[in-house]
């Protein structure tokens, strides 16, 4: 376990350095890193501090948030298909964010945008949990997720279509696919409090989730208050997903892929998986964000495209494996 965590942390750090040196501006890795600590580089220091550093930080924060949320939801629902993006939590958060931007709430209140996204995410998690029921049967979970995703996506598109701003309609893609391009420290400041609060809540659920692997009755006899676990799970997930979606749009599949890959490495223990998935999520989003900059640097390739290309086949594989349970 310790070796795994060290390996994951080391990878996060290495990818962070690569992320800082990858970009359309043609400068050497050494110069760009030196410019972080030295103002004499002129515009390069500006590029490093205001463009690359916030982007790299956001990839770590948001990736960790999404990985953690996926691991927590899968642990609670005991279903490997639960993922904030797939079951509509991210799209409802995006709906909240879009409403906040279009009503002017985001401009008038400092934390208006992330709070609105959090409210949207809260609705999404609540609806999914209510529709899927406490057992979280695969079929109902996925159907509920599809319904909520479609509804939230349609409403997001509607709000953007009705906006008097001619650019708004083109942004449907951003809210559905997510991107970290051209974000600044303002956005880091917006997401950080929500990610930290949500992460603390979700990480504290480890013991309860471990107990749940033995079944609900066993967990209850072990003194786990299932209603409390459920409430905190809803709040924690909404907080991390809401914050992440408010600044980066709905990035899917990270919460699905990462826990799936790491589960065997932590012997399927949810409390360990929470920590490992947070680091794994940071790694996956960083890799995706480096990839979009290296593959098509001039096109603003959306993050969600890359994560979906990796995640969707895995999703199919999981469905295939759980097919017996679905019928």
């Amino acid at each position: 376990m310790i070796r795994l965590m060290l390996f994951l942390s080391g990878t996060v750090v290495i990818l962070f350095l690569i992320a800082l040196t990858a970009g359309p501006a043609d400068v050497s890795a050494r110069d760009s890193l030196a410019a972080l600590f030295d103002d004499s580089y002129g515009p390069l220091s500006l590029v490093m501090w205001e463009i690359r550093l916030p982007r790299a930080l956001l990839a770590v924060i948001i990736g960790a948030a999404l990985g953690l949320a996926g691991a927590a939801m899968q642990g609670y629902l005991r279903n490997p298909l639960a993922e904030p993006g797939l079951i509509g939590v991210s799209s409802s958060a995006a709906l909240g964010a879009v409403i906040a931007i279009n009503t002017g709430l985001a401009a008038s209140a400092t934390l208006g945008l992330p709070f609105a996204a959090l409210a949207g995410a809260l609705m999404g998690v609540f609806l999914v949990m209510a529709l899927a029921g406490p057992q979280g049967g695969s079929l109902t979970l996925i159907l509920a997720g599809i319904a909520i995703s479609a509804m939230a996506g349609a409403l997001t598109s509607l709000v953007l279509n009705l906006s008097p701003n001619p650019f708004a309609a083109n942004e449907i893609v951003f809210w559905m696919m997510g991107s970290l391009a051209d974000r600044s420290f303002v956005h880091v400041g917006l997401v950080l409090p929500f990610a930290v609060v949500g992460a603390v809540i979700l990480l504290s659920l480890g013991r309860g989730l471990d107990a749940l692997t033995l079944g609900e009755d066993a967990a209850q006899t072990m003194g786990v208050n299932l209603k409390r676990v459920r409430l905190w799970l809803v709040l924690g997930t909404a907080s991390v997903v809401g914050g992440a979606t408010a600044v980066a749009g709905a990035i899917g599949f990270i919460g699905l892929v990462v826990p799936h890959i790491l589960r065997p490495l932590v012997q399927g223990q949810p409390s360990r998986l929470l920590w490992a998935s947070a680091l794994g999520g940071a790694i996956m989003l960083q890799m995706a964000d480096i990839a979009v900059r290296l593959i098509l640097p001039s096109r603003d390739l959306k993050l969600g495209v890359v994560t979906a290309l990796v995640g969707a086949p895995l999703f199919l594989h999981l469905i295939y494996k759980t097919r017996k349970g679905l019928v």
Binding site: P24, A25, P43, E50, N102, N165, P166, F167, F174
Partner: peptide, 23 residues
């Protein structure tokens, strides 16, 4: 990044539309 590295003397931006957009 490219804009920042080019370091122009004057930056001629557009007046944003009312009602913010991410663009």
């Amino acid at each position: 990044e490219v804009l920042a590295m080019a370091d122009p003397d004057l930056l001629v931006g557009t007046t944003p539309y009312p009602r913010a957009s991410r663009s």
